[in-house]
């Protein structure tokens, strides 16, 4: 029986962090299943899902990672996950929309958008933001499987955006695939 472990790593960015963490997992005979990594404003953030033999404990993994020699401070969270807790249900592609919002930078924009999605049972699959020339841009990939219809959500989103001074566009995801990819569904 294998054990599923999620590792979350945060550090000031430097070359070699992926090799260090993946090396530790490898040395413990772990199988790296999924990885997501990005750098935001000079901070390295990575989440890893890996499978280990059942006799490896969370403590052993933490100790192994603690042995990594690093001139930046590696903050690592290690947690065992129960497979039954993971919601594996896949969203149907027809319910996935991309929302882009642009407006003058101010506090509370991400909160408002997050709260809107929460209130309307919209799952955010991906969220990316960018600040340039004091214009704040947000790109959200959202799943409307459990929410009201796309048209209703679009209208409500527009109303909220007006109050926030945001220009919001909501379009079906396939548009972006279609325009930017070679193959067409």
């Amino acid at each position: 029986m294998k054990k599923r472990i999620v590792l979350s790593v945060m550090s000031l960015d430097r070359p070699g962090i992926v090799a260090d963490i993946a090396g530790a997992i490898y040395q413990l005979n772990g199988d790296l299943a999924d990885l997501s990594q990005s750098v935001i404003s000079g901070f390295f953030i990575m989440t890893v899902i890996a499978q280990f033999d059942s006799d490896i404990s969370v403590k052993e993994i933490k100790e192994k990672i603690a042995l990594i020699e690093s001139d930046t401070s590696l903050e690592v969270l290690v947690k065992e996950v129960d497979s039954s807790e993971i919601n594996q249900s896949l969203s149907l592609p027809e319910n996935i929309y991309i929302v882009t919002g642009q407006g003058e930078n101010r506090t509370g924009l991400v909160f408002s958008m997050g709260a809107f999605c929460k209130d309307h049972e919209i799952n955010i699959i991906d969220y990316d933001t960018k600040l340039s020339d004091n214009i704040y841009s947000m790109i959200l990939e959202i799943d409307l499987t459990n929410s009201e219809s796309a048209e209703v959500i679009h209208e409500k989103l527009n109303n909220m955006a007006k109050e926030l001074g945001l220009k919001v566009v909501m379009q079906h995801k396939s548009l972006f695939d279609t325009v930017n990819e070679i193959s067409l569904y």
Partner: peptide
């Protein structure tokens, strides 16, 4: 999906 693809399409 790359955000610059999305923004350029918009």
């Amino acid at each position: 999906m790359k955000s610059d693809h999305i923004l350029s399409t918009i």
